[in-house]
Write a protein that binds this DNA or RNA. Structure first.
Length: 407
DNA sequence: TCTGGGGTCCTAGGACCC
DNA sequence: TCTGGGGTCCTAGGACCC
């Protein structure tokens, strides 16, 4: 251990959802397990036993069934996964206060200066953390330890599955330079295409490419790209950024493509009511309501309207959504998927309209409905507004009484 | 093969204000 | 009458991540 050196550990659970299923259903251990929703969806996670058959996440379920028909297919249970996730990060926080959660199954922690606390060097501490996750949760996690965030993350990729890799700064450059460019976090399908077209295939190729060319190809992002490629990533680990979320969203793929807009609206309205309930539960309001529609041909449109003040009321959200719905939906094409997004989060306005004293009553009604649904399930109450405001072909969506930003 | 659901961040143009 | 530049907000679209 050298003074002044940073030690960043990236921890990533292996095949997280599938591993949790195997942990809570021991009879699934050593079996191919595939987690994913309906037959119109994709694979959310595949156990390593299933991956041997070529199954991987984001693959259509239909295809996974063909490749591995004897696999155990399970619907995802996100509440259980969230519970395991919390327990994993709680273990990490026992070893360092600087833990950053970047997704349900992975995060970073800063182990610089933990020597005195743990009487052990960082790689030893990293090893203990992974062991504790394994023994207490019954799932495997992999780790990468390096002097930078991106180095740590790429090291995890090399360590998987169920491994730990320490990239010493002196060797990091050598090890990483041979990796393909799409190992760099942020380089996806599109950026990869561009890079490959210019014969920039490895991280080393990237460091040999002129700044000007990269700037032309990727604009401001090129600086970040070069920092990561050359090992000069100075981004630090910031604890607890998960608290300040920016939006809530829900999407649903219909069971079959349809032109039945009454049905499409009722699905949309249910998503909106569930989201608004989450706002109320978290004591938040949203100022921007967004609507997304995807057609059978996979074209999609996303539209949004910002209100004057953040709201958490079903009625206001539904009324705004209703405008968007009527402005957006094409009657020429079959609908495949709809989505709702609430953003521009802030404290909910207590009363948005001084001239409409009935508003507080709606807020009270929303809360009563929330309580009933929490106890008896969502279906227990059908809110009139979800079904009353139906799409109307003869109107352009100018619902009277709707307040919106002057435009 | 036939493509989910939850998010974040970035860009760019137009409106509007100073 | 013709003209500037900067800042901020809104909206749409797209890339990316797990």
């Amino acid at each position: 251990m050298k003074p002044g050196r940073r030690y960043i550990l990236h921890v990533d659970a292996d095949a997280f959802f599938a591993s949790v299923e195997q942990a809570i259903h021991p009879e699934l251990k050593a079996l191919p397990v595939i987690v994913g929703g309906s037959d119109r969806g994709v694979v959310s996670a595949a156990s390593y036993e299933a991956r041997r058959f070529g199954v991987h996440s984001a693959m259509p379920i239909v295809q996974a069934r063909k490749l591995c028909p004897h696999a155990v297919f399970r619907d995802p249970d996100f509440r259980v996964y969230a519970e395991f996730s919390h327990r994993m990060f709680d273990i990490m926080r026992k070893y360092s206060p600087i833990v950053e959660v970047t997704s349900v199954d992975e995060g970073y922690m800063d182990l610089t200066g933990t020597l005195r606390l743990h009487k052990a060097p960082p790689w030893e501490v990293a090893h203990r953390i992974l062991s504790e996750i394994r023994s207490t949760l019954g799932i495997n996690a992999s780790g990468g330890l390096a002097g930078t965030r991106s180095g740590a993350k790429m090291a995890t990729g090399l360590a998987k599955p169920n491994g730990l890799l320490y990239l010493e700064p002196e060797l990091a450059g050598q090890v990483l330079s041979a990796l393909p460019v799409d190992w760099i976090p942020g380089v996806g399908k599109k950026a990869l295409e561009v890079l490959q077209w210019h014969r920039i295939l490895t991280i080393e190729d990237l460091t040999c490419t002129s700044r000007e060319l990269l700037r032309r190809l990727f604009g401001r992002w090129s600086e970040r790209l070069l920092e990561i490629a050359s090992g000069n990533d100075l981004k630090i680990v910031r604890p607890d950024t998960s608290g300040d979320r920016k939006s809530y969203s829900k999407e649903r793929t219909l069971e079959a493509d349809t032109r039945d807009l009454v049905h499409v609206w009722s699905v949309t309205a249910v998503l909106a009511e569930k989201l608004a309930a989450r706002l109320r539960e978290d004591g938040k309001g949203a100022r921007t309501v967004g609507f997304k529609i995807r057609y059978a041909d996979f074209t999609e449109t996303i539209r949004s309207i910002s209100l004057r003040a953040p709201t958490d009321g079903n009625r206001e959200v539904l009324e705004t959504l209703y405008i968007l719905f009527n402005q957006t939906v094409s009657r020429q094409k079959k609908v495949r998927q709809v989505g709702v997004r609430l953003s521009g989060l802030g404290a909910p306005a207590l009363q948005t309209n001084l001239f409409d004293p009935s508003r507080p009553l709606y807020r009270e009604r929303d809360r009563v409905v929330d309580r009933i649904r929490k106890r008896f399930g969502f279906q227990a109450v059908e809110v009139a507004s979800a079904t009353a405001g139906r799409p109307d072909a003869t109107r352009s969506g100018n619902n009277p009484g709707i307040r919106r930003m002057a435009s």
